[in-house]
C-alpha cells in the first residue's frame, strides 16, 4: 500500500501518463526520466533522512567506522 512517505519528493520529474516502456525516441540514445519510468526513485522519507542532521551524525560515525575497517585491514596486511 502506498503511503504519503512513499511518494517521490516534490520536484521529481514524473513519467508521463501512459509511458510504461523502455523505448527511446527513434534515432536517440538519450535516456530521460520520461523514457525510463522503470528507474528506482527515493521516497520522501529517504530524501529527508539524507540531510536530517541527527541521523547524519549517526551515519557519519557509522561510515567512518566502515572506512577505517577497510583501511586498517589493508594496513595489517602490509
Amino acid at each position: 500500500m502506498t503511503t504519503p512517505n512513499d511518494d517521490p519528493p516534490a520536484g521529481t520529474p514524473a513519467p508521463p501518463a501512459g509511458a510504461r516502456t523502455r523505448a527511446r525516441p527513434a534515432g536517440s540514445a538519450l535516456v530521460t526520466s520520461q523514457t525510463a519510468p522503470y528507474v528506482t526513485r527515493p521516497t520522501r522519507w529517504t530524501v529527508f533522512l539524507r540531510t536530517f542532521v541527527p541521523w547524519q551524525l549517526w551515519r557519519f560515525a557509522r561510515i567512518n567506522a566502515k572506512m577505517f575497517g577497510i583501511i586498517f585491514r589493508d594496513r595489517a596486511r602490509h
Binding site: 517521490p8 519528493p9 521529481t12 520529474p13 540514445a29 538519450l30 535516456v31 530521460t32 526520466s33 525510463a36 528507474v39 528506482t40 526513485r41 527515493p42 530524501v47
Partner: peptide, 18 residues
C-alpha cells in the same frame, strides 16, 4: 540502480555505451 535513481531524481538524462 542507485546511479539511475540519483539521475532521475535530479532530472539528469543519460547516454550510455557511447
Amino acid at each position: 540502480l542507485f546511479t539511475e535513481s540519483l539521475f532521475a531524481e535530479r532530472g539528469i538524462n543519460w547516454i550510455t555505451r557511447a
